[in-house]
Design a protein around this nucleic acid. Structure first.
Lengths: 244, 244
DNA sequence: CGCACGGTTGACCTGTATCAAGCCGGGTGG
DNA sequence: CCACCCGGCTTGATACAGGTCAACCGTGCG
């Protein structure tokens, strides 16, 4: 039918032999279901560093699974202020914000050269009528995003600068670790300003807090390269501030 | 089949003659679809002021549509801090956070005697396979929650106390207005402390800011009764702080 | 009647923002 | 290959929004 990929293209974009499959697709599919899920990905798209995958106001049509690279999503207030609402890495899904109003309500900017799988949402809804595990998967991905944002609200609403940055670092390194990277070393893909914006802090505060952590022997920082020296102490910062 | 409501109970809990239907259910259903949607609601449940509809850790099984009353949802950090993540009123759906891990990750507390419709999530998923508009509706509700939370992140991450409280009041009154209440008067269902917790402020700051708004002639406050005198000025506070 | 809880207001303190100067490393062009 | 420049970062000095602590008030309930 219409413009589904040809067999050759299908091979290129197939989820069935993609190493990230267990991150963005449901597990336990039958071979037949797997064939059908392969058709979800209409195309791949490269997004170079600094440019947008979509912008606020763009018509919504697809969800995007990140294959490689790093994104930030950010909201703009009417007056021009911006708020980074998240950083997304390989295996994560972006675009969920567009479903309600059939247009995106935030920008998704690549902060590193990236490639995404384009999954037309119509195909997703259609297929998830037949494939229960896909339906369930879609629900879980959206619910997970809701829960993640609850966590960010907790961070922004009740944590002090050190706690915020500690939580941020631990979260990043944990997600990277789930992708096979070190659990103690990471390379920040974003600037201090972007981190600060996400955490509700100014870039100077982020910088100072990095320095303090380094002084206290919790981490080593050299530019964007960070090594977590004392993860337990960071974790204690996050959830045992013994306030009151 | 199993323990679906009897015809009589069905009548009591039927969405088809519920005045809130257009708030929590999709529009444009055929009469046949409407019949089936009526079966979504397994029961109604009363929750009295101060008690929980569900708590963090409770097994997830159902979404809840609020019929009457007012809820707050709040997250707890491991150390005991709490963060109110939202206030929900009639016609709104709560429980979405439970889908990912089959258990709730936050508490839903009635801050006013309430009644909810219990909609087992299995029935929702099952029925949304057949009824496309229900499927779409579920997606939109979840996406809407994601977008709402983006807005809260913007508020918590980049607004000052006055802007936060102005945004909060305007949001509340707008939602109440959509339910047929005044667009200029409202009765707060929550304490200053709950407002402050939600907005990332202390209760004293909330109180002072109310007083300042009153002094400036933007609102009139008497305890929990608030009258919006100058909505435009409030709106200007939110999105034209001309920072820099 | 009186207590208790929610709210207001004041005085003071502190964490983070703001403003400012300077550093460092990488890329560019001569 | 070197000099320069520029963006990102660090660090210091100071300002201020909001937090903290404390006293008091009002209202509704037991």
């Amino acid at each position: 039918m219409n413009n589904h990929p040809t067999p050759k293209e299908q091979l290129q974009v197939a989820c069935s032999n993609c190493s990230l499959r267990e991150l963005c697709m449901p597990v336990g599919l039958t071979p037949e279901e797997l064939d059908r899920v392969d058709e979800l990905v209409a195309a791949r798209r490269k997004v170079e560093r600094g440019s947008a995958l979509f912008r606020r106001g763009d018509a919504f049509g697809s969800l995007f699974a990140i294959r490689t690279g790093f994104f930030k999503t950010c909201m703009a207030a009417p007056d021009g202020r911006e708020q980074v609402t998240g950083f997304q890495m390989a295996g994560e899904i972006i675009g969920l914000d567009g479903i309600v109003n059939d247009q995106h309500s935030c920008d998704a900017i690549a902060i590193e050269d990236a490639e995404v799988c384009v999954m037309p949402f119509d195909r997703i809804t259609e297929l998830s009528r037949d494939v229960a595990s896909l339906q369930r998967h879609v629900h879980r991905i959206m619910s997970r995003e809701i829960v993640r944002e609850h966590g960010v609200m907790l961070l922004l609403g009740s944590m002090r600068a050190e706690e915020r940055l500690a939580a941020f670092l631990l979260n990043l390194v944990q997600r990277l670790h789930a992708r096979g990277f070190s659990r103690s070393e990471l390379v920040l893909r974003m600037t201090r300003e972007e981190i600060g914006n996400y955490l509700g802090l100014k870039l100077e505060t982020v910088s100072r807090t990095f320095s303090k952590f380094a002084d206290d022997g919790l981490i080593e920082v050299r530019h964007r390269h960070v090594r977590i020296v004392d993860p337990d102490a960071l974790a204690r910062l996050v959830d045992q501030p013994l306030r009151n």
